[in-house]
Design a protein around this nucleic acid. Structure first.
Ligand SMILES: [Mn+2]
Ligand SMILES: [Mn+2]
Ligand SMILES: [Mn+2]
Ligand SMILES: [Mn+2]
Lengths: 223, 223
DNA sequence: ATATTTATTTAGATTAGTCTAAATTTTATT
DNA sequence: AATAAAATTTAGACTAATCTAAATAAATAT
């Protein structure tokens, strides 16, 4: 059995590795988890002893097969619970993450299997992120961000890659949600901001940071 | 914030006090929780400092107003989750307790409020026990056990007062479930066992222990 | 190639929750 | 009432997860 805390380390290692490709540094883990590097070092030794990770002093860390599977299980649970909260319990997409952080650690094979069935085997969560299947496969279709497009492109919002409340509240206040229609009116080279027309109505300015976290699908055939 | 462990102490104090009426002894808590009395003493001091309990050395412990409310909140969550598992996720009544022990500690006002609505505000859980309302009231109608009745009485099973897997598995193997019809054929004074006719079919012998934990409703007007 | 800076690990301390063994208080029995 | 037994608390120790400060290794800059 792993503690909640050990599970959170494994999940964080997975997330950082996913974003960077390579091995995960002690410092990056410490920063992500809001704790000190010395604490991380202790835990890495422990997770290595339990063979969830491959760890060489000073060389960073990678998940073992076992660790990777555990990470995917946790992410599966997290995203299924988020789906449950949005679809069945009237939560907004900006309210689910915190609760899912707790629910993802509940231990019960049957629970998660039945939840999956109850939700009719969803493949993406409320933020547009893929949900690993029971056999831990993820339908990773290529994901495009608003940032990848240019003037005159027409797009539909299908997800976000940052599910912090801060970001999702910002989208709410911009009136951007899943399904919103976006036409790019201008790409400003100066600060990489985007001027867009939203649902053929309001004109809105989007910062680089927002544009890098909005997952969209093109409605025309430009790249 | 209380830890899971602190919450479990409070719940155990509530349960023991509910059964016994009076103040709760260190030893009874230690036994219920499967830990040593010395450990309990430490925790009682801590819960007293946080004013969840009234505690005098050597005199046992009672819940404060604050502690009682917290206990009821936890029990509310436990029983709502059990209801969810049975009604929505195809769990059997003998499978839910262990998972509910985990879920009862999830912190989210909105979650439990919406779960209550989603289940249409149930008043009893799958074992026939009352679910505290959002304002922590419990519709405590008097409960009758099979043990309270006598020869020729006809009863319907509406709950159990022991939700251990051991007991519920035993009921399953006796083919007794919620709604089962029971006619008392014989009350044996020797060992307080009961011979019953089940659903007008099989004849079954029930031990005193089982009879004391089966909650029933009379189908005729005898007491 | 050295020196400096940055990243990481080691050492020692702290808190929560638990234990065993010993001391003390309360309860029960002569 | 005195003694024995039981219940409870105290004392001291352990593990998990964290911290700060110091030491060491790796990376970078001169
Ligand atoms: Mn999330
Ligand atoms: Mn988490
Ligand atoms: Mn239960
Ligand atoms: Mn519990």
């Amino acid at each position: 059995m792993l503690s909640f805390i050990e599970e959170n380390y494994i999940k964080s290692i997975y997330k950082i590795a996913e974003a960077s490709g390579g091995p995960v540094s002690t410092n990056s883990l410490a920063e992500k988890m809001g704790i000190k590097a010395a604490t991380v070092t202790d835990m890495l030794r422990k997770l290595s002893d339990k063979s969830f990770i491959h760890y060489q002093k000073y060389q960073g860390v990678t998940l073992s097969e076992k660790g990777n599977n555990r990470a995917l299980q946790i992410i599966r649970k997290h995203r299924l619970w988020e789906m449950f909260l949005v679809q069945k319990l009237n939560f907004g997409w900006d309210e689910v993450h915190e609760v899912a952080e707790q629910l993802e650690h509940i231990q019960s094979e049957k629970l998660i299997h039945e939840l999956d069935r109850f939700l009719d085997y969803p493949t993406i969560d409320p933020h547009g992120e893929p949900i690993p299947t029971a056999s831990l496969e993820m339908n990773r279709e290529p994901v495009w961000y608003l940032f990848n497009f240019r003037k005159a492109d027409i797009l539909t919002v299908v997800g976000v890659s940052d599910d912090s409340a801060l970001f999702l509240n910002m989208l709410d206040s911009l009136a951007i949600s899943l399904g919103s229609l976006i036409e790019i009116l201008e790409c400003n080279e100066y600060d990489n901001s985007f001027l867009i027309k939203l649902n053929n109505k309001a004109t809105v300015l989007i910062s680089q940071k927002v544009a890098q976290n909005l997952i969209v699908q093109p409605n025309n055939d430009r790249k």
